[in-house]
Design a protein around this nucleic acid. Structure first.
Lengths: 236, 236
DNA sequence: CGCCGGACTTTCACTGAATGAAACCGAAGG
DNA sequence: CCTTCGGTTTCATTCAGTGAAAGTCCGGCG
């Protein structure tokens, strides 16, 4: 008996769903994937995958690399960038962020990946991915490439190995921290906002190192869960 | 006799194509579109559009605004952001940029929209959209929202009306300029890179105001055309 | 050299998913 | 009350999409 083996996930029903799953195969993956790898990840038969991928390439959502493998293309970027600063996400998050602020006393914000930086929706700041809690959450979930690890303070993690092990730990625990790694005297905590299992953003709190931070963990997780649930609810 | 009126474009053949055209309907459009407006823009019958839109919403590529209209969603952003800095585009552009540099004597670069800024692929800089030639090209083609028009020099255009009329002129001529609007002593020219009629990037040249700039226009247009053709060729 | 195995591509008969005309709903407004 | 106009649902029709199987093109190995 064949073990039913779709890389863990059920195959998409509609054509549109199949197209989407091909795109999804690229997040949290190497930049470039070969056809069979995409098929494996999506659980689709190879010829079907080929047709999907071809249409995506023709449109510009994917592009072929020199060696024949595929990567996300210019058009999908253009569309993604045309999405206005996710007002919807921000609006949805504000109540949760407010209670988070009041429960922890720190600055609460929500960050989305944006071309190798974490864009904070409330403050508008861009933060480096490797030196902040929110950034690490995004990295841990496959966003951004980790580029040069620029040093910001004497506590910034600049060795890829250390960072990698932190990331895998973050994936396990669902919580990231940064101790004065971006600015001295500043401590931050972050958790992933999951929208049907894809991390689309990170909620985070920044506190002075001196402040108490006992309640932060649970408050943060709850905020993340609330926002994620809100996103899923908007699906109906 | 009904004038055949698909907003100018032929309807998509395949399901995937229809999904794509729905997404395309959002670039260069107001943040939020209602169902019938999407149908009009894509040339699809309304019920079909509804189905597409529903699947997109379920996936997270679109989201419903409070008033029932639609806007691009978090997932499409996440995917777009997962696209690595478009190496492909950069690689493809380098030769053209090199000849552009040698023909004009300035700094040549290519910029893509990224959350309300123009991200330069060669230099890595982010430029404001309203105060640079490349940014204006992107704005003129529906990228980024034009947010607060921050003043950078005494020549920065800060009145929305003036900018709007510049943009419409840019759309006509296919060329944008900025005279010391971002930095004093600096003059820049830009042209859109079209990939099957969607502007996905802007090539630009920056020169000291003192430098001669007679040959710039034609060199720039040619570079843009070369790169665009390269992108379309990658479609095969 | 010849054989093998793996990645990719094409073919093709079958079928159910997608289609869109038409009917329906309900809010706005005259 | 009637009309209009977005939005939604239904449903018979059909054709786009499907995927098993066969074919092609490597590149490695005995």
């Amino acid at each position: 008996m064949k073990p039913k083996e779709n890389a863990g996930c059920e195959v998409a029903e509609s054509v549109a769903g199949r197209v989407f799953s091909v795109l999804d195969a690229f997040v949290g993956a190497p930049d470039t994937l070969r056809l069979t790898e995409i098929a494996r990840r999506t659980g689709l038969p190879v010829p079907t995958t080929l047709r999907m991928v071809r249409e995506l390439v023709a449109w510009g959502g994917l592009e072929r690399a020199a060696d024949g493998s595929y990567r996300l293309g210019t058009r999908i970027r253009a569309i993604g960038a045309a999405a206005p600063c996710p007002r919807g996400l921000l609006d949805l998050s504000l109540p949760a962020l407010r209670t988070l602020t009041s429960r922890t006393g720190g600055h609460a914000d929500i960050a989305v990946p944006s071309d190798g930086t974490a864009l904070c929706l409330v403050s508008g700041n861009r933060l480096p991915l490797h030196a902040t809690a929110a950034g690490k959450i995004l990295l841990a979930h496959g966003h951004g490439p980790l580029t040069a690890l620029q040093r910001h303070t004497r506590h910034t993690v600049t060795t890829p190995g250390t960072l990698a092990s932190q990331l895998s730990r973050i994936r396990e625990t669902g919580l990231a921290t940064a101790h004065e790694e971006y600015a001295l005297g500043e401590l931050s905590f972050a958790a992933p906002v999951l929208r049907s299992d894809l991390a689309v953003a990170a909620v985070f709190v920044t506190l002075p190192t001196s402040a108490p931070h006992t309640r932060v963990d649970s408050a943060l997780r709850e905020a993340a869960r609330t926002i994620g649930r809100g996103l899923d609810a908007a699906t109906r």
